[in-house]
């Protein structure tokens, strides 16, 4: 029988894709942390108060959620090549942790986004029109 896509080749290709996607997730998380660090320092230098810090935490939370999405994509890809029950179990545990964390992060982003929006000054009605 003609073997168009040997299992070993599939395993190597998926493994490479998993590595790429997970590296992208880790990069997003680290870049987000570094950018948030710079913004924290700027907020501290300007003395913007507690709301400034909440806004930057919101910014960091969005990057963490995006990085988690990449890592979850890597987990889904990995299910294609996990041969043993132990590997599948570990994958399920990691995916569960990431999914739960993503859920709580999204809730936190939503809540703190509302806090920042409430604290922001509201535009005066009729002032923006031409």
């Amino acid at each position: 029988m003609l073997d168009l896509l040997p299992e070993e080749t599939l395993r190597e290709v998926v493994d490479l894709l998993v590595r790429l996607v997970e590296a992208a997730g880790a990069t997003v998380i680290f870049v987000g942390a570094a950018a948030a660090f710079v913004r924290f320092l700027l907020v501290a230098a300007r003395r913007s108060g507690a709301n400034g810090f909440i806004a930057v935490r919101l910014f960091l939370g969005r990057f963490l959620a995006l990085g988690l999405e990449f890592q979850l994509a890597g987990d889904v890809l990995r299910t294609a090549i996990s041969p043993s029950f132990t590997q599948i179990g570990q994958l399920a545990a990691i995916a569960a942790i990431r999914t739960a964390l993503n859920f709580f992060l999204s809730r936190e982003i939503e809540r703190e986004g509302r806090t920042v929006a409430e604290a922001a000054p509201r535009p005066v009605p009729g002032a923006g029109g031409g």
Binding site: E22, G25, A26, I29, F30, G32, A33, A36, F37, F40, F53, V56, R57, L60, G61, L64, G67, L68, Q71, I94, I97, R98, L101
Partner: peptide, 15 residues
């Protein structure tokens, strides 16, 4: 703030 950065570090280690 500290805990948010520590969560980021934990996520990196989890990979």
């Amino acid at each position: 703030v500290l805990l948010d950065f520590l969560v980021a570090a934990g996520l990196l280690r989890l990979s």
